[in-house]
Amino acid sequence: MGLLRPDQGEVKVAGLDPSSQEARKISGYLPEDASPYRTLSVRENLEYVGALREVPNLKDRVDRVMDNLTLREYERAKVGRLSRGNAQKLALALAILHSPKILLLDEPLNYLDIPTQERVISILNDDISSTQLVSTHVMSVAGRLTDHVIMISRGAVVWTGEISDLKKLGSENEPVEKIVARMLTSVA
């Protein structure tokens, strides 16, 4: 997100320097265990970050995002008092508020109940036309949210391809998690 400089190599976001304002405008980011501004309410968080990102028609956009993620009933709630699941929904709302073209998601389904997980998967797959980079340890999440998998262990790329190709590396009916575990163990 342009906060740290790489020790070596080069990073580009859609061909742009990640620390440039242009790259920031088109990027959205959801960290793992994301915590929004604790002393602001849900609506205040969305409006404040929306104003910082200069989101057009901010009020309508905030209303729509809250409705999509069923946050409306908590709009005046202080974030410090939200359940972990609702805080995660708000964090996701903050990441997609400005309709980013590139979305970095670190364990996006953490803390969410099953119906909300399905709603979030639907939003990410159908409602957002962005390139999404999802970091996860849960293979079912990778399978539902991504087309292409890059498996990394100890900072090195172990394997890359589609989930269907990954499944073919194991025996019939072998869970994909077992295949991944075997591959990562053999590298370690």
Binding site: M1, G2, L3, S19, Q21, R24, S27, Y29, L30, P31, A34, P36, Y37, N45, V49, L52, R53, L94
Partner: peptide, 8 residues
């Protein structure tokens, strides 16, 4: 991840 990444 919110304020500091919204501008320089």
């Amino acid at each position: 991840w919110l304020g500091f990444t919204s501008m320089d």
